[in-house]
Nucleic acid binder design. Sequence first.
RNA 1: GCCGAAGUGGCGGAAUGGGCAGACGCACGCGACUCAAAAUCGCGCGGGGUAAAACCCGUGUGGGUUCGACUCCCACCUUCGGCACCA
Length: 929
Amino acid sequence: MADKYVPQEIEPRWSVRWEQDDLNRSVVDPDRQKFYAMTMLPYPSGDLHIGHWYAMTPSDARARWLRMRGYNVLFPMGFDAFGLPAENAAIQRGIHPKIWTYRNVENMRIQMRTMGAMFDWEREAVSSDPEYYKWTQWFFLQFYKYGLAYRQKAAVDFCPNCNTTLAREQVWGEDRHCERCGTPVIKKELEQWFFRITKYADELLDHPQDWPERVKAMQTNWVGRSEGAHVTFRTEAGDPITVFTTRPDTLWGATFMVLAPEHPLVEKVTSADQRAAVRSYVDAASRKSEIDRTAEGKEKTGVFTGGYAINPVNQERIPIWVADYVLISYGSGAIMAVPAHDQRDFEFARKYHLPIRIVIQPEGVDDLNPDNMIEAWPGEGVMVNSGQFDGTPAHYSGDGRKNEAVGVVTAWLEEQGIGHGAVNYRLRDWLISRQRYWGAPIPMVYCENCGVVPVPESDLPVLLPEDVDFKPTGESPLRYHEGFLHTTCPACGGPATRETDTMDTFMCSSWYQYRYLSPHYDGGPFDPEEGAYWLPVDQYTGGIEHATMHLMYTRFFTKAMRDCGIFKPTVAVAEAMGRDTVHLFDEPMVALFNQGMILGEPRTGDLIVAEGAFEGGKLNASHITVIDSLENVPGTASLGRVVGEVVSRKELVLNVQTPDGRSVVVDTDESTTFAVPRKGEDATIEDIRYHLEVEKMSKSKGNVVAPDELVAQYGADTVRAYLMFAFRWEQGGPWDSQGIQGVVRWLNDVWALVNAGAPSGAGDDAAERDLRRKVHQAIRKVSDGLETFGFNTAVAALMELKNNLQDAQRAGNVSRAAWDEAVESLLLLMAPFTPFITEELWQRTGHDYSIHNQPWPEYDPEAAAEEEMTLVVQVNGKVRDRIQVPVDISEDDAKRVAQESPAVQRHMNGKPPRKVIYVAQRGMVSIVV
RNA sequence: GCCGAAGUGGCGGAAUGGGCAGACGCACGCGACUCAAAAUCGCGCGGGGUAAAACCCGUGUGGGUUCGACUCCCACCUUCGGCACCA
């Protein structure tokens, strides 16, 4: 009897061996085709989560497969190590962010090594290392030099209780409260640094082909391009008010204008008698948060300024209103209101009894009438009430929103000098300033004489000081660090102060794919020799949650780098290598794939009988018994009792739902006794299970799955394979702690099967052909699965192949040679999924180290082809018989055999066939009578 | 409201370009082994129907195209995700 499969013994042994032998070291080799595979790097939170395994191990399997197919594969890993949690730990627990972060990094490195991933640790990059953030700062300087970075006042979220600025993700809930103390946040104006991502708005709309449609759609939405025209109205005093409109063809229908409350002209156009009303409206609007403005629902509010504007197309005098449904941050902060053809304007006009004029009359329906319209008509029609343009058709063209009237009117506006075609975007520039300590300092200096001065490149990095105080003062601790704050001006040598804000951590993660190439290189952000070979990233994988932030920023970064000339040295080397560099550095990642998320495992709460005394509505329990069904409730006690399912628990208090749907509080104390069958009589309240829904894993919900424990229990191979088998990778789903048994059995079977060796009987030709066929069918399925990220079907095919091998072993009808060939293929096909057990068995079957450097088995369609097939016969579209026939049956024979079938004849009822269809590829005959 | 994705057994899921619905697993049931349990092995496992077959129904709902629809078209429902007064 062969020994047992003990992954705990095998896995550490091979980990050490692979590391010693540099098995996963990837080096530039121009003679081989490169493949840069990358998965999103983790934040060093301290513990590797099952979600990390779910994201990384399938990605690793695919990288391994590509390596076996002959690619020179680079699959690096690192840490996105700047960020808020480190600072929170400092404030809450008094640990320095650096110590906390690096301790976590160290721990996670150890955890990650158990995954068996082919990470090239020589290329590890940690974004909080000075040798990393030096270059993050360098990028800032380059962007500044090329006009892509600028400084401006902007509002940030601020918690008045914690006295600190908050990042977006720290603001929670509809009422926008502080994540830590629950106080509603307020807005605060601060001078901040921005990157001009809007300059790339159009280019960002043009996505790499191999990106998911979902991500493309989200980014397109985010950029929010809309085409139309800028038209300049004038106030009666002659001040220009430029508006953006997508419908210049409705200009003649403008019956009023609306300014955003923050619009600079509000004060000036307001008449004396309206001043008080306007001021109070503007004040009220400024006190409301964005959410308040929208949370009030659809009801629009506004106030008349008393001022008038002149419509440049017909010289009409129209009133100017102020309303907060017009946003200062979009377009010009002013609109022309065309209530007949815009729903928002329509609602506003109805509420304040403003005139409505039809200028697009729809065809084929009753004419619109301003008096009885109940909604705006944004659709197609013919221009009316529009002077010389009356009769101009306004129909949407096939390719988008624009109608022909827009083009005609826009041309005329340009001719008249009152407007011009324009494009507007929803996208805003990227605010990168953070009033935070644990990030890369922005390398800028403020001098009284010279103003804003960049730190010279030779002075980088601007080091983050370590001796700082973490009192929540509302500003970065850097502001109070005298040694950091005070410096000399690089231009004039006079006294100056440093910028104390640090950079958004999305900056660090915008270029890490480049730093991986040469994490210790000091001649630039990355070594051009490496870049010229490996770039760009061929396959990027990660969570969908980064669709609009990280993935837009990293695309912007690459384009900005290109325009700053940062790729020039790389291009030169690449061209010398013979690579085509046209558009090579326009995008950071050629292909993208998003995996889903593992959710918590649902379970029902324990059914309990709680006995004790009622006090008000709550039961003070003296004894609690867990029961298996409501049918065997134990004998009645004289005391009060509650029977039902435990829905939740908070410390010593249980919430119990009774069968009639009532919710009862059951309180316990040290004297309460518990009887839990699975634990015995000495159980505690900790042993009572409460109800869990399917929801995101979190410590507070008590539904997290710890990969370390799973690895200790089952081994990494099992955890890897289970994560790949149990879910559609792109979808994810709730964890199922029972399902892993299937994978446990599979690997145990493979272990036993391979160790047992070939069956002793003589080979049977047909059986051997059969086995070989199964092998080649598996090669195809597994390869297909890996290609398309269908890891679950790939593992299913491997399980099936194991079943086939078991059958052959039991039948004992294949020769040793045929058996060995099949086993060898099985191990090779499994290697990307379960690297440890396959390496071990590869060695035990007498093969040369390492299985991971072997070529991927070649698929032979002839070997995979079936000799027989099941001919499916349908009569009037319903399957009536299945007949075994040779694969190469002729069409005539197939049709004849089908019609001879008794079952088929029965259903033909003696009627002649009207039509007989033969589908050779599917082995099917369809008879119509 | 707009944009996008998805609805298949008790559960996770499979089904190449319209062609045998439910691969592979989990759970469950019955049997074997065992003093017993676990592990393991064998059989069964969408619903109805039958002694067994035959047969009928079945991929969110309702229509349509087709010899044939999980797959294509139209309308709708539900769930999830993104954006949201964007002029």
